[in-house]
Nucleic acid binder design. Structure first.
Lengths: 346, 346
DNA sequence: GAACAGAGCTTTACCGGTTCATAGACAGCT
DNA sequence: AGCTGTCTATGAACCGGTAAAGCTCTGTTC
C-alpha cells in the first residue's frame, strides 16, 4: 500500500498532452511561447494526473530555493514561553505563503552552531536566504556569514548588523518614552530589568534608559541585566524590591519577566500599582491575562515579521540593501502603572 | 560582493582529487568501493574547497527529502502564547538535527488549507514525511491525507487518528487523576474549562471528567468548551464563578487559560486557593510565574516531541505502523490547589 | 517573390548529485 | 601459465525539471 507511489513526472504530462516537456515547463512558469489553447490543455492534463512540479528538481535548475532559513539561538524552554517569536514567525509566514515559500526553522544552542548551520544550509543550497536575529555587539556571526554571500535580512539596529540590510525598531526612543511616562506619573526611583547586556537591543535600551533618566535629573543606575526567562525576571525583581530605597516603578525587557515580576510583588505583599508600577515590553496577550493587566510598550510583532520577510525578498531580488524601520513601540497604559503612592526622595 | 558565488561542485572536488565524481559520491555516502586512502584524500580536498553535497541535487537522485512538514491550524496570536508548541517543536528539532533533517513549519487557517498544503508539499516532494496534530473527531483530513500515501505520524489517541501511526498520551487517565485529586482534597463542585469540543483530546478529557465525577457521586456537568486563548478561558471562568453554586475547583485544558482564570478570580475578589482551586494543564514555566504558582498536570512536552520525531523516522523507514504511548501527565501540586475553605453541598 | 519577423514548439544541454554495469589490477589457487 | 575472485574506480545513464537555441510555418513588407 505505502510503497511505489505513482510518480507522475513532467514527461507523463507532456506525453499525455501531446507536447514536449519544454512546453509544459513554459506553461507552468507563465512564460510566453505556448498558445492559450495548448496552455490550457496542459493544465487540464496536469490536473487529471495530479501533477505538481517537483520542487526539488525545479530548484536544481533555476536558482530559486523556495525556502528561507531562520535559526534561533535561545533555550527551547524559554522560546516556548516567549510570545514574541511565534508571532514574529507567523508574520513571516504570512508573507512567505504568498510566494509559496516556506520557513525552515531551527533552534541552536550557540552562535557557532548557528553559523555552521547557515553555512551548511547555504552551501548545500537548502535555503535561498536567511533571517538573522538577536544581534550582539560586535556580533561574531557577522564576518563568517557575510563571507557566505548569502542574501539575508538582519533584525536589529543598523549599528549592530554589520552591513546586512536590517529591519529595526527604535528601541532607544521607546525606552526614553517609557522613562518619561513613568517620570510624568511622579516616579523618581525607576528601575529596569533588561535582557543580556551583550544583546544589542538590550544594550540600546539600557543606554537610552540611563540617558533619559540623567536628562530628568534621576538616577539611572537601577538596571539589571539578566536573561529573558521569567525566573530570571523574578530574581531580578526580588533583588530590586529588597533594596532599602526600592524602586517605585520597573520597566521590563519583555512581558514574561514583567508577569514574573508581578508575581514577586504579590508574594512580597506589595500591591501593583500602588506600591510598585510595572511596565512590560512587547505586549502579547499575556499582559491582558494578569490582574491587574500590565501596561506595556506595544508592538505589532506580526507586522514586524511581515516587513522582515518582504525585505528579504527584496534582498534576494537585489533591490534592497538599505535598512528599513518599523514603527516605534508605543505605550499602552493598563492597570499596572499609576502615580506612586508615597512621597519619595531621590 | 554578493553576486557570483564560487559554486564548488562535486566535479571540482573530483578533478582536484584526481578521481571520478562517482568516487566522491561513494566516499561521502559511506559506501564501499573506495579505498581508505582515496576516501581520505577526497575528504581532504572537499574540506579545502569547502564543499558540501548539494542537498537539493542529492534528494533529486535518492529519494530522501531531508525535510519534515508540520502544519499547525491555530490562530497565530494564540500560538504565540501557547507554550506547548514551541517546546514540542524544539523536541522534534532535537531529533531531526541528529539526522540532518529540518522542519518545515507552516501556520494554516483551516483544515482545508492544511490538506491542500500537505498535498502540495508531498506531491512536489518538498517533504519526506509529516507530523499531524490537533485531531478532531471524524477528522476530515484523514481520508485525503491517507490517500496521499505520505509517511506521517499523528499526535493523538489512536481512536482519533484514523489509521495513521500515532503517538499519544493518556488524557483520560490524567483527567480522572485530576478529578480524584481535587475530590480527595474535599472539593465537590468541580468544574472544567476545556478546549473546543470538536478537538479529540478535549473530548476525551471531557468524557473522562464526567465519568470520574459520576463515579464519585458528583455532578460532572460543570464543563465549558471554549477556545484555548486566555481571553476565552477568562470568560469561561467568569461565567462559572458567577453561578450561584459556583465551583470550588476548576481544571483547565492548558496553562494560558488557567493563568487567565487566576486573574479573573483576583478581579472578582476571590482568593486562590482558599475560595477557588485552579489546576492547569501542560505545565509550562508559566505556571511558576504567577502568584500563587499554579498546580498543574505536568508533561514532558519536549520529550513528547522527540518521541514523535523518532516515530516518524520509523514510519518513513517502514518499521512502524503501531501506536506509541508517552507517559501520562502527572499531577504537580503547587500553591493554587488546597482543600476548599467552606463547607459545601452538591 | 525573396527576405524577414515572430509566434509556437521541439531539441538539447545543463543543474549536481546517485547508482550501477563494467573494466583493470592484483592475489590466490590449481 | 591460466583461471577465478576481490577490491577499486570509472563512465554513462538517470532523477525531474529549466533555459536557451533551433526549427517550422504563416503572414508582411518592399
Amino acid at each position: 500500500m505505502s510503497t511505489g507511489a505513482p510518480r507522475v513526472t513532467i514527461n507523463d504530462v507532456a506525453k499525455r498532452a501531446g507536447v514536449s516537456k519544454g512546453a509544459v515547463s513554459m506553461a507552468f512558469n507563465d512564460r510566453p511561447g505556448v498558445s492559450r489553447a495548448t496552455r490550457e490543455r496542459i493544465f487540464e492534463v496536469a490536473r487529471e494526473l495530479g501533477w505538481v512540479p517537483h520542487q526539488t528538481a525545479r530548484s536544481l535548475s533555476g536558482r530559486r530555493a523556495g525556502i528561507v532559513g531562520l535559526a534561533i539561538c535561545r533555550p527551547a524552554r524559554l522560546l516556548g514561553l516567549e510570545p514574541f517569536y511565534m508571532e514574529f514567525i507567523s508574520g513571516i509566514e504570512s508573507v512567505l505563503t504568498e510566494r509559496s515559500y516556506s520557513l525552515l526553522l531551527r533552534l541552536v544552542r550557540d552562535l557557532d552552531e548557528e553559523v555552521a548551520l547557515y553555512e551548511e544550509w547555504w552551501r548545500s543550497k537548502t535555503i535561498g536566504g536567511a533571517i538573522l536575529v538577536d544581534f550582539h555587539r560586535e556580533d561574531p556571526r557577522i564576518p563568517p556569514l557575510r563571507a557566505l554571500g548569502m542574501p539575508a535580512v538582519a533584525v536589529g539596529h543598523p549599528s549592530l548588523t554589520g552591513g546586512f540590510p536590517s529591519v529595526w525598531t527604535d528601541d532607544a526612543t521607546a525606552a526614553a518614552d517609557a522613562v518619561r511616562y513613568l517620570a510624568a506619573l511622579g516616579h523618581r526611583r525607576i528601575a529596569r530589568v533588561g535582557g543580556p547586556a551583550g544583546l544589542g537591543h538590550s544594550a540600546i535600551r539600557a543606554r537610552a534608559f540611563e540617558a533619559t533618566m540623567a536628562e530628568l535629573g534621576l538616577d539611572g543606575r537601577r538596571q539589571v541585566s539578566t536573561g529573558f526567562a521569567g525566573e530570571e525576571g523574578a530574581r531580578a525583581t526580588r533583588g530590586l524590591l529588597l533594596t532599602p530605597d526600592r524602586p517605585t516603578a520597573i520597566v521590563y525587557d519583555n512581558d514574561i519577566m514583567a508577569v514574573a515580576g508581578a508575581a514577586v510583588a504579590a508574594e512580597m505583599g506589595l500591591v501593583v500599582p500602588d506600591d510598585v508600577s510595572l511596565l512590560a515590553w512587547d505586549d502579547s496577550q499575556l499582559c491582558r491575562l494578569t490582574h491587574p493587566p500590565l501596561s506595556a510598550m506595544s508592538h505589532d510583532v506580526h507586522r514586524f515579521g511581515e516587513v522582515v520577510a518582504r525585505a528579504l525578498f527584496e534582498v534576494i531580488e537585489g533591490t534592497r540593501s538599505e535598512a528599513l524601520q518599523v514603527p516605534t513601540p508605543s505605550l499602552t497604559p493598563r492597570g499596572s502603572t499609576s502615580p506612586p503612592r508615597t512621597r519619595q526622595g531621590t
